[in-house]
């Protein structure tokens, strides 16, 4: 099972194991990681499961589809590395992924 590292804005580190096919948002919520709200439950309708991809991982990420890219334009504190975690699906390829959580989702 792929493992993620989620780092809160205050530096707290969470190691999360998720199932293949599960979204990163849900894996994080199931592990009770604070800082991922996911108000719409993963329908890509709210932009409150926003996270920053670690620089090391940025080049290895699949590109955002147009809905995600559009929604991200309005995520609070958006950066070039911003993603919506409800649209990132856990896979072997993402094993070890490191994400940073924005302060706004607390």
């Amino acid at each position: 099972m792929p493992t993620l590292t989620l780092i809160e804005h205050n530096g707290t580190v969470h190691q999360v194991t998720g199932e293949i096919g599960q979204s990163v948002m849900q894996a994080a919520m199931f592990a009770s990681v604070p800082g991922i709200q996911g108000d719409c439950g993963g329908a890509c309708s709210c932009a409150t499961c926003h996270a920053y991809v670690d620089d090391q991982w940025q080049v290895r990420m699949p590109e955002a589809e147009s809905t995600e890219a559009d929604m991200l334009e309005y995520a609070v504190g958006r950066r070039a590395t911003s993603r919506l975690t409800c649209q990132l699906v856990m896979s072997e390829a993402l094993d070890g992924l490191v994400l940073h959580l924005p302060e706004s989702q607390y």
Binding site: C44, S45, A47, T67, D70, M71, E73, Y74
Partner: peptide, 8 residues
């Protein structure tokens, strides 16, 4: 199908 408009 215009999510950016929705957020704006």
């Amino acid at each position: 199908n215009r999510p950016g408009d929705h957020m704006a």
